[in-house]
Simulated scan of single mutants.
Amino acid sequence: MAVSLQVIYPISDSSTFDHDYYADTHMKLVAKHMGEYIDQALVTKGIAGGPKEPPAYHAVATMVFADQASMSAAMKQSGPVMADVANFTNLQPQVLIGEVVS
């Protein structure tokens, strides 16, 4: 069964996030080190939390893997990706791992 890994960057009063670096550099590191195991990747930049509401998240990255074994293999290669987080944000991202049900 396919599994997804979502990396979620919540906005707070003191949070910073460099969207250009994230798109141009960080996601290329993801592709280089983990890409062979990823079936699909999607990054969503937060622009609103609803009508006339500010976004609650800077960004959400979703990666879909064929199965748990593929995700585990990707995570074993993620060291350089994890080390890069401090280059674009001062946040500790939240993570959601789940079964893809539709």
Results as ranks from 00 to 15, higher is better:
42 L>F: 09
66 A>G: 14
40 Q>S: 14
78 S>W: 11
88 F>P: 01
12 S>G: 14
82 M>R: 12
9 Y>N: 03
90 N>V: 08
45 K>V: 11
12 S>M: 14
4 S>T: 12
1 M>S: 09
67 D>H: 12
18 D>C: 05
15 S>I: 04
84 D>L: 09
26 H>A: 07
17 F>V: 01
44 T>K: 10
76 K>P: 02
102 S>F: 15
73 A>I: 08
63 M>N: 06
70 S>L: 06
37 Y>W: 07
11 I>P: 08
85 V>L: 04
55 P>C: 13
96 L>K: 13
65 F>K: 02
71 M>W: 00
98 G>S: 13
38 I>M: 10
17 F>W: 08
83 A>T: 15
75 M>E: 08
55 P>M: 11
30 V>D: 01
80 P>H: 08
63 M>C: 12
13 D>A: 14
99 E>G: 11
1 M>E: 05
65 F>Y: 07
2 A>E: 13
11 I>A: 12
69 A>P: 00
4 S>M: 14
28 K>E: 05
72 S>M: 00
4 S>E: 10
51 P>I: 15
98 G>D: 03
79 G>Y: 14
67 D>R: 10
96 L>I: 12
58 H>C: 03
22 Y>H: 06
56 A>T: 15
88 F>Q: 02
65 F>S: 04
98 G>L: 07
70 S>C: 07
59 A>W: 08
85 V>Y: 03
84 D>F: 07
1 M>F: 07
47 I>Y: 15
99 E>S: 14
6 Q>G: 05
81 V>I: 15
54 P>L: 13
13 D>N: 10
95 V>M: 11
15 S>Y: 05
12 S>Q: 10
34 M>F: 07
97 I>H: 06
95 V>I: 15
16 T>C: 08
35 G>C: 02
84 D>N: 12
27 M>V: 11
100 V>N: 14
70 S>Y: 06
94 Q>P: 03
64 V>H: 05
34 M>W: 03
57 Y>L: 06
101 V>M: 15
4 S>I: 12
27 M>W: 03
2 A>M: 12
76 K>M: 08
39 D>L: 15
59 A>E: 00
45 K>H: 09
45 K>A: 02
97 I>R: 07
17 F>H: 04
52 K>N: 11
101 V>I: 13
69 A>C: 06
95 V>S: 05
